[in-house]
Design a protein around this nucleic acid. Structure first.
Length: 585
DNA sequence: TGGGGTCCT
DNA sequence: AGGACCC
């Protein structure tokens, strides 16, 4: 049973800007409201409504109104709206789900292949639709059921298209009038409901133009949504706002099959009352670390219902010291604190990087086992056989994403095992240790194999040495998860568009000519310099290496002056922020 | 709690 | 190689 809280009781805390944002640590003194007003982007976030369920409705003609769920192992991972209405939850045990809904139909969903195929189609339709609106719109795939686009380039300054929302499911948050907003349940099971009567007031000039732009963006969103529905049969929910954070939050405000426009001036009160955990990028570990300082400062909410508002009322130094306890944030806790605080007031400067087609950067297959059921090595080897088969299929499937399919092969393979650590068994609820081993992988040779038995054998020859490297001599290995991953796809190592031309046209490049020469002479190639191997590097490998700034300084100094200066002109990639989650999309 | 993914250190 | 985060 969900916990509800009502923000109307607390709405007064949102009204006083001084009080609410006294904590704002903005470096250049920009006020929070300024931060919001200065973001002139129009970002679109798309969520496919209960994606797996829609797949099953299409693939197996399941009646939509019959409650059903998707099961994996002993849990259900998602369910349709009819089942949710009966109290079926995400990541619930099958037993609990049946208790909530005895007539529930559970469909086995451990094999993701059909879902991946639907997802690819949806993304490709979405991408094409965006590019047709304007070729320079940056488009990015998030997960199988999430996508984002930066529509800013398509919104003209003085455009005058009248927007007609008749019959369309469009919700505008921050416009005058009455609103009823239900936030969807988050991963912790916290469910919040916000009912708020919004004050009627008129918009200032800058708000007015923002409002115009976002409404035009929502008009584009509607067209794209219709296109997705017509071409794929899937319904989607969209969020439109001024940055990726707010666009994503917007798409969660009302589901399914809607377009949600969130004006930035409305986002502050919305976020203030939202549980901290619902902020994208603020996960379990972070909230746990922050709990100390929230308690210490005795903020208003009940424990476990910390809101953004609560965090904003904590002195920043306290937040920083809390974050020091997260190992990953150890050396960047000040930056992390700023990033989280910014998010709490709806500010997010992250950019949407176009993914140039969306081909996955890593492919992995995994299988999990109940504790104590996989304790012998030979059984593990047998289980790995199935993973080889699945990985083989995945690798061939991925060629459908690639714009250059002969480069659609990986160069690295990794075996990961999760075991039970007896030392942790008494202390933690999930006393697991995850370890991995990786090596290079001749994906090109693999992809050229025609026979599936040979493909499996090839993967096995690559994976068994990794298994051996674990040195599992003890008989008490208690494996709870095994996975095999491939990465380093060659069709992704190609340079961004603004790179020097010789990266895109290797044959005519100064660089490749130079490397040819040094290789024929006594000088060594970069690859040789880096790891002492004598294998010749392909031009794509070279491009990848230089692009990643991994070139050995001694090699760099040997390059011709014009090449060096051109390399220097390539701007070093701005360091990505840890919670810059939309770059991951 | 599953079967995937992304990015950062 | 490992960890935090996402769906």
């Amino acid at each position: 049973m969900p916990n509800y809280y009502d923000l109307s009781a607390e709405s007064s805390v949102c009204d006083s800007e001084d009080d609410a944002f006294s904590n704002e640590s903005d470096d250049d003194g920009t006020a929070s409201a300024e931060g919001l007003a200065s973001d002139h982007r129009c970002i679109l976030h798309v969520d496919v409504d209960c994606f797996y369920c829609q797949c099953e409705v299409q693939d197996r003609q399941i009646p939509k109104d019959k409650p059903f769920a998707i099961g994996q192992k002993h849990i259900i991972v998602t369910s349709n709206y009819a089942a949710r209405a009966m109290g079926v939850k995400k990541l619930q045990s099958r037993t609990a789900a049946y208790e909530a809904c005895p007539q529930l139909l559970i469909i086995e969903g451990s094999d993701l292949e059909r879902y991946r195929i639907h997802a690819r189609k949806i993304y490709q339709v979405f991408r094409a639709a965006c590019k047709r609106v304007h070729p320079e719109i940056a488009v990015r795939r998030g997960s199988m059921d999430e996508m984002m686009a930066d529509l800013s380039v398509a919104i003209s300054i003085d455009g005058d298209d009248r927007v007609d929302y008749s019959n369309d499911n469009v919700y505008i948050y921050g416009a005058n009038g009455r609103e009823s907003i239900a936030l969807t349940e988050d991963q912790t099971g916290v469910c919040s409901k916000i009912v708020q009567e919004f004050q009627v007031r008129s918009l200032g000039p800058s708000e007015w133009s923002c409002s115009e732009r976002l409404q035009r963006a929502s008009h584009i969103a509607l067209q794209i949504r219709r296109e997705i529905l017509q071409s794929t049969g899937f319904t989607t929910t969209m969020g439109v706002s001024v940055n990726p954070l707010l666009a994503k939050i917007a798409s969660g405000l009302k589901k399914p099959a809607t377009v949600n426009v969130l004006f930035p001036w409305r986002s502050q009160s919305l976020l203030a009352s939202m549980p901290l955990r619902m902020i994208p990028g603020v996960g379990r570990t972070t909230v746990k670390a922050l709990q100390h300082c929230l308690e210490k400062n005795a903020v208003s909410s009940q424990p476990n219902f910390w809101t953004c508002q609560d965090l904003l009322s904590v002195p920043k130094q306290d937040i920083v010291s809390c974050l020091e306890q997260v190992p990953l944030f150890k050396h960047s806790c000040e930056v992390q604190a700023d990033i989280i605080l910014q998010k709490c007031i709806g500010v997010d400067h992250s950019q949407i990087q176009d993914d140039e087609g969306g081909a996955p950067k890593a492919l992995s297959v995994e299988n999990s086992f109940r504790r104590g059921t996989l304790v012998r090595k030979d059984v593990l080897c047998a289980e790995l056989e199935e993973l080889y088969r699945r990985l083989s299929r995945l690798l061939h499937e991925r060629r459908e994403w690639s714009h250059s399919s002969r480069l659609a092969y990986p160069t690295t393979i990794k075996l990961t095992l999760r075991t039970v650590d007896e030392k942790l068994a008494s202390k933690k609820r999930r006393p697991f240790v995850t370890r991995s081993k990786q090596s290079s992988f001749d994906g090109l040779a693999f992809m050229q194999l025609r026979d599936s038995a040979q493909q499996v054998a090839f993967l096995k020859r690559a994976a068994l040495p990794l298994l051996h490297a674990f040195e599992l001599k003890s008989d008490v290995i208690d494996i709870t998860r095994a996975s095999i991953a491939t990465t380093g796809f060659q069709d992704l190592s190609a340079r961004p568009k603004d790179s020097p031309t010789y990266f895109t046209q290797p044959c005519q490049s100064n660089m490749s000519t130079f490397i040819e020469q040094t290789e024929h002479g006594k000088s060594r190639s970069p690859r040789d310099a880096l790891n002492g191997a004598s294998t010749k590097m392909s031009i794509h490998e070279q491009a990848s290496m230089f692009h990643n700034n991994k070139i050995d300084p001694s090699i760099l100094s040997q390059l011709p002056p014009d090449v060096i200066s051109e390399l220097r002109q390539v701007k070093p990639k701005k360091r990505q922020r840890i919670d810059d989650y939309f770059k991951r999309l």
